[in-house]
């Protein structure tokens, strides 16, 4: 009887002791946490969070910041940066403007979209040898003269891999943009080792372009590629939007508007290197086909 009593006593005391210890510890930690929560409080700007929510959250880096979160922070701090998100476009800019009580200026500038400045498919180019190295454009670019033209598209798809939107594919040896899917994030233009992809302000739904980057003389370009710009200057005679500089014709994208003059330039181009790019662009005429004898 006595023994059982003592055992019971011991047990109860043990339970009481442990309960007390836990309570003490819990209280101590609670106090620590309480102090920490006050002392180490991180103030989150609600606006930053809201702006971040409004952004596409794809962290593409087109705005020039590491990701959407850092752009959100930057745009809240400096309203000048509004409208830098090209994947989001006008809608995102307006949403952010709503949060920050700002005005979107002048309806926004024309969205930037990439144009590949080359139009040569595999059959149009001259190859000196077969490339058997690492199938990356950067690696192939370091192995000179395999493809005669040192400016043209290599077709190993560094841009395709860089694209997060499945908007760029290598079709028959040429990087081709799918403008329906493209958001203008600039990743492809940064990936191309030959700097063929330029971000162009698309003032129109379809832009005209001189799809070549060759700065070789006309004679050399012709020997290397069937659809290269030979800098003959015919387009310049048609429209003053074209200029020829350093053996390469170029269109002034800022001022471009479709007109009869540009249209004639396109049809008159002897190598057919002036083409249309965009969502509903017309198919360029096949390589080697003689220029249509357009009566001025």
């Amino acid at each position: 009887m006595m023994l059982a009593q003592i055992a019971m006593d011991q047990l109860l005391r043990g339970i009481a002791l442990s309960a007390a210890t836990m309570l003490l510890l819990g209280t101590a930690f609670a106090v620590v946490l309480l102090i920490a929560s006050v002392k180490l409080k991180v103030t989150v700007d609600e606006k930053v969070q809201q702006v971040h929510e409004a952004l596409p959250k794809i962290d593409c880096g087109a705005c020039g910041y590491a990701g959407c979160a850092s752009y959100a922070k930057a745009v809240v701090a400096n309203p000048e940066l509004l409208g830098k998100c090209s994947p989001g476009g006008q809608a995102t800019a307006e949403a952010i403007a709503g949060i920050l009580n700002l005005q979107v200026r002048g309806g926004g500038s024309a969205p930037l979209r990439p144009i590949v400045h080359c139009r040569a498919h595999k059959g149009d180019r001259t190859y000196h040898a077969e490339y058997a190295g690492i199938p990356l454009c950067t690696a192939a670019n370091a192995q000179p003269n395999v493809q005669a033209c040192k400016f043209g598209c290599l077709g190993f798809g560094d841009c395709t891999r860089a694209c997060k939107f499945d908007a760029l594919h290598v079709i028959d040896g040429l990087a081709t943009v799918d403008y329906e899917k493209c958001t203008g994030c600039t990743a492809c233009s940064k990936a191309c080792p030959r700097n063929l992809i330029e971000m162009v302000p698309f003032g129109q739904e379809n832009m005209m372009t001189v799809a070549c980057s060759s700065r070789e003389t006309g004679k050399v370009t012709r020997s290397m590629c069937q659809v290269g710009c030979i800098a003959c200057g015919l387009c310049v005679k048609q429209s003053d939007l074209f200029t020829v500089d350093d053996n390469l014709a170029r269109l002034n994208y800022e001022k471009y508007e479709p007109s009869e003059a540009t249209e004639t330039a396109m049809t008159k181009c002897p190598t057919g290197v002036i083409v249309e790019r965009g969502k509903t662009a017309r198919q360029p005429r096949a390589a080697g086909e003689k220029a249509a004898k357009a009566s001025a």
């Binding site: 690492i134 990356l136 950067t138 690696a139 670019n141 370091a142 080792p193």
Partner: peptide, 8 residues
């Protein structure tokens, strides 16, 4: 080849 590419 990969290391060379990486350097570039």
């Amino acid at each position: 080849g990969y290391i060379k590419t990486g350097k570039i």
